[in-house]
Design a protein around this nucleic acid. Structure first.
Length: 378
DNA sequence: TGGAATGATTACTT
DNA sequence: AAGTAATCATTCCA
């Protein structure tokens, strides 16, 4: 087998001294002049450039440069298509989702955040998120103006470089591929800047979100209506303050809050009540008075949604401090007679709650030793 | 302005 | 999965 042809070593680019044989003295001079341009001032260079353009050997020089270029075969590093950058894609998606990268639209903006934020009535959301929307709008404006600036600068610089290359192409061979390559480099540099812009915009949006949309930070006290509804249920089911899912839904609807807020409220209430029963006596009295009045007005069985009444023999832990609950007391008395077998027909009360809230004689500010612990719904 | 009240979150238990 | 207990973060009020 014949040995593969040895690659021809690239000829060194002509430096100060031109190859003597094929080129004459004129050409050598011209080349020297070209090389010297880099050491000259701008004005000198311009003058020299003009002189070169008008030089009688210009076309000869051009063809020589073409030949040299052909031989040295300066390969334009093939600019492989960048694979779609995952991080850039994420940034773009996020900016799109936040309504930053799309043109501003009325009423949009924080919608994603608003729907994700639990709690509060819808009005609250719109009021609280208006601040967010305003700030997001500012971010959007800055983002777009910066983006526009970068694009403008990119266009100008590309034009400038292209013109420069076109002009140079009069004295040296510049292929369209080279031009494209150069333009590609410029674009990739500018897109790096744009990525930076996108990154910082995303960070700004994230900060804004956490500052203005974080549910815990935007805590609002429930409306009086909601608190009343919840307290009424709580104190009227003191022996077993564990509303069912359906009841929670109903309470949520009545109070204009979410089911999870109802759950949170009952969780907090149970804990805090258990921890400091005495502190809640006044409140308990108030609500048990209210609900008993209401139930008297409604008559027996007036609370269809309250299915988790205390079971007989596991009466509510607290004495009814207020008067006006004669009916309740009598009803409670009735419950003191355990049914045959003593079985609980109702939802089983949570034993831990009952254990923990077993009435302590000292915890009753009313000191009414004659009254019975009662769940008013009984 | 400080402390109490309160809604939400989190780690853990049942 | 629902509840408890501790804690956080915010709001309210004297």
């Amino acid at each position: 087998m014949a040995a593969p042809p040895r690659p021809v070593p690239p000829q060194p680019a002509p430096r100060r001294r031109a190859p003597a044989a094929p080129l004459g003295r004129d050409t050598s001079d011209v080349l020297q002049q070209i090389m010297a341009i880099t050491d000259q001032s701008l004005d000198e260079a311009q003058a020299r450039k003009h002189a070169l353009n008008c030089h009688r050997m210009k076309s000869a020089l051009f063809s020589v440069l073409c030949e040299i270029k052909g031989n040295t075969a300066v390969s334009i590093r093939h600019q492989e298509e960048d694979p779609p950058d995952a991080q850039l894609l994420r940034l773009d998606n996020m900016l799109l989702a936040e309504g930053v990268s799309r043109p501003e639209k009325r009423g949009r903006g924080a919608a994603a955040g608003a729907t994700a934020t639990p709690g509060g009535c819808p009005n609250d959301n719109s009021i609280e998120h208006s601040d967010y929307r305003a700030k997001l709008s500012q971010i959007r404006q800055i983002y777009h103006s910066e983006l526009e600036k970068y694009e403008q600068a990119c266009r100008e610089f590309t034009t400038h470089v292209t013109n420069l290359l076109r002009e140079q192409s009069r004295v040296r061979p510049v292929s369209s591929k080279e031009m494209e390559h150069m333009v590609g480099i410029i674009h990739s540099k500018f897109s790096a800047i744009q990525r930076q812009l996108k990154q910082s915009t995303c960070e700004a949006v994230m900060t804004l979100r956490s500052r203005l949309l974080d549910a815990r930070r935007k805590r609002r006290n429930f409306s009086k209506q909601a608190t009343e509804v919840l307290n009424e249920y709580f104190y009227s089911h003191l022996s077993n303050p564990y509303p069912s899912e359906e009841t929670k839904e109903e309470l949520a609807r009545k109070g204009g809050i979410t089911v999870s807020q109802v759950s949170n409220w009952f969780g907090n209430k149970r804990i805090r009540y258990k921890k400091n029963t005495g502190k809640f006596q006044e409140e308990a009295t108030m609500y048990t008075g209210k609900t008993s009045t209401a139930s008297m007005a409604r008559g027996p069985g007036g609370q269809p949604s309250c299915q988790s009444t205390a079971s007989p023999g596991s009466c509510g832990p607290f004495p009814l401090a207020s008067g006006g609950d004669m009916v309740l007391t009598l009803r409670t008395l009735a419950f003191l007679q355990p049914p045959p077998g003593g079985a609980c027909l109702q939802t089983p009360a949570h034993s831990s709650w009952q254990r923990a809230t077993t009435p302590q004689p000292t915890s009753s500010p009313a000191g009414d030793s004659g009254s019975f612990n009662s769940d008013v719904s009984n």
